[in-house]
Amino acid sequence: MLTILFDGVAYGMLLFILAVGLCVTLGLMNFINLAHGAFAMAGGYLTITLMQRAGVPFLLCLPAAFIFSAFLGLILERTLYRHLYDKTHLDQVLFSIGLVFMAMAMVDYAYGANQQIVDLPSYLTGRLNFLGASIGVYRLFVIVICGLLALGLQLILTRTRFGSRLRAAVDDGRVARGMGIDVTSIFAVTFAVGSGLAGLGGALGTGIISFDPTFPLKYMIYFLIVISVGGTTTITGPFLASILLGVADVLGKYYVPAVGGFIIYTIMVLVLILRPQGLFARGPAR
């Protein structure tokens, strides 16, 4: 039981790192980027490639995945995404689904449709015994890394100048602009970092979740659940939502495999109807 709970928390932490960029960009520019999962996939496949073909150590792949996806995000934001901020949500959805399809096709072309598996370094593979529960070292590793990242993000948002500007821009972009805050470049940076985090999440995820070209579509739904439950006004909301979803998903798959998905989707719809601003969000919806 404790083992499963632990796995769930690790999975939830990973989901948070994967999804947090999307939550912030949605809150900031009211832009629905359904292609967010493609950036995570890029990080995951980069890790797989570096490790399998170039023999790069796993720990080095993590920052590489972050930089690669962040760079990718920055380029796409500056060239394509910025044209879509003033378009309708439907256009944004279609556009980002288009990107997802292209990404899926390209990965399929380069790597095939098979699931990719990574050989983790031996120091990350064992199991520990802790209070009678058997805990995977790798999952512990994921929890520590993601926990540190979440803490770091929270500190950046609450303690730094950039963070306060970002929060101002999320609260009211027009007012922030009026106060002389450069919302455009804040958004570009946030988009890049969000994509980078997704890439890092993808790299970390190679040890937990299997990668195949349908990854962006499969995880898009998880991201949407995190957003709808966690809201987009804070990062603690998505954090709690991710942990909850991770635990519920792992528990559900273990104990009630037949209705696990059913319950999660039902909860998502209920939350959307009853609390459109998110379960953990403060204040009324805008």
């Binding site: 279609l94 990107l99 096709a105």
Partner: peptide, 9 residues
């Protein structure tokens, strides 16, 4: 799938 995505964009 690639061309479909491209057309959408």
């Amino acid at each position: 799938q690639f061309w479909l995505g491209m057309m959408l964009v």
